[in-house]
Design a protein around this nucleic acid. Structure first.
Lengths: 151, 151
DNA sequence: GACAAATCATCTGCTGTCAAACAATTGGCG
DNA sequence: CGCCAATTGTTTGACAGCAGATGATTTGTC
């Protein structure tokens, strides 16, 4: 038996044994930081991602946005509602398939996105400052394989 | 076939750029698998972790369980409620500090834990089969650093 | 001892997430 | 054409997670 510990911690042992738990707890901490950061800037994480994707790939249906951003389609409704209310996107009916919308980013939305994007590098730096640049790349590659993404 | 882009996917690009998003999406997928696995075996993830910690370190207060397992203390109430109803733990008052309980695992709880533990290796194998053993160790180490755990 | 502050477990209420059901529309197939 | 299955966006209801308040108890300070 080793010396008594004034603060016996069990979590490190658990994290070492249960990779799933370590992943979830790390994610929760990061998500918390992301929400706080997004809250400060007045644009939710989901809203930011939607604007970002729209600018990258052009008008999309909510379905496509949901699938690519891994945001549930029922949640996407309110995300787009808020963006539309704020004037950051327009919802136009797709004439080829009138079940779906063609969600389109507006100029105001583009400006808002640019503001939000500007603060992301610092946010990432703060959140992952425990890892070196090489380690972040490693982590990114491992998560990519876990998500079964093409290289 | 070089230019076969029947399904242009944006997510890989996003995941490469936003490490936080990649982490959260991977975690969500893993958590989903864990919940499904736990549901099949009739013992929630939180309940399993509580039993596991109690067997490892002995009787604990709910506060200590909450802090070490990173489960909110208000959630720990219902987790322990369920465990107590099922006869897997007892809640005895700590005579030294009667504000807190000494949550204690029962023999039935130990047997239940043993059953649940037996299925974990296969669950981990299924969930992380996209990664080699060395990659899992790498991921574990990176998450440990992100969580600022001692080596 | 008296009293203020801190701690533990609990309860309440709010928010975000997701499953299931729904209407509108499209496409397939006779 | 007519009918049925699938898809898109939406609403509803259930549930987890978390902040804040509360009651009981302990600790610290005078």
């Amino acid at each position: 038996m080793t010396a008594d510990r004034s603060k016996p911690t069990y979590f490190p042992q658990l994290a070492a044994e249960r990779l799933d738990i370590a992943l979830c707890r790390a994610s929760a901490a990061v998500a918390r930081a992301a929400d706080a950061h997004a809250g400060e800037h007045g644009l939710g994480v989901g809203q930011h991602l939607v604007l970002k994707m729209l600018e990258a790939v052009g008008p999309c249906s909510q379905q496509t946005l949901s699938e690519e951003l891994r945001i549930d389609r029922t949640v996407m409704v309110s995300v787009c509602d808020d963006l539309e209310k704020a004037g950051h996107v327009r919802r136009e009916r797709n004439p080829r398939d009138r079940r779906s919308y063609a969600v389109t980013i507006t100029d105001a939305g583009r400006r808002r996105l640019a503001e939000a994007e500007a603060s992301i590098p610092e946010f990432l730096e703060d959140t992952f400052h425990g890892l070196t640049s090489a380690e972040r790349d490693q982590l990114s590659a491992l998560l990519g394989r876990l998500l079964r993404l093409p290289d």
